[in-house]
């Protein structure tokens, strides 16, 4: 179904499309869930801090690239005293198998989770063949 190309925790600079990044922010590989239902392959990607207009999805041939740009957190007159996470951008690449209907891919973003629905192409769907009564 979908297969990732990279599994590193951090990748700087990005060579996602062969070019160098021009933003000096950390880049994370977001956590993803992939499950398959009867008709679709569903991809859930955690990208906290990324608004719906900060998501960039490109599909080139069989390569699905997901990018999320998080807005800068403004904390004026504040001093950071403790940190467990770092704000940054997200990037992850998946390779789609042939049996995905590429024109029917739907994407939505809610509460920092990107949801991609990839419908299976017609030949890959299992067809039930009814028996004719003689």
């Amino acid at each position: 179904m979908a297969q990732e190309l990279k599994t590193t925790e951090r990748q700087v600079p990005s060579t996602l499309d062969g070019s160098e990044r021009t933003r000096s922010r950390p880049v994370f590989v977001p956590r993803a869930d992939i499950y398959e239902t009867q008709d679709n392959v569903v991809l859930l990607v955690d990208m906290p801090g990324v608004a719906s207009d900060g998501v960039d999805i490109t599909l080139e041939k069989r390569t699905l690239a997901i990018r999320g740009y998080a807005a800068n957190q403004q904390h004026q007159n504040y001093r950071q005293v403790y940190a467990e996470y770092d704000a940054g951008d997200y990037e992850r690449v998946f390779t789609l198998s042939e049996d995905i209907d590429r024109d029917g891919i739907e994407a939505s973003q809610k509460d920092g989770v990107l949801r991609l629905v990839l419908p299976k192409a017609a030949p890959a769907k299992a067809r039930k063949i009814p028996l004719k009564m003689a």
Binding site: T7, R31, L44, P48, N77, R79, Q80, A83, D111
Partner: peptide, 30 residues
């Protein structure tokens, strides 16, 4: 490495003169 156990949710803490700001990453939770 991607699914290694970690405290959830991760938090950040900022302090100001008379206030403190706590931020947490809670994706997918309403």
């Amino acid at each position: 490495t991607a699914s290694a156990a970690q405290e959830f949710p991760p938090i950040n803490l900022w302090t100001g003169e008379d206030s403190v700001a706590v931020a947490a990453e809670l994706p997918g939770i309403s």
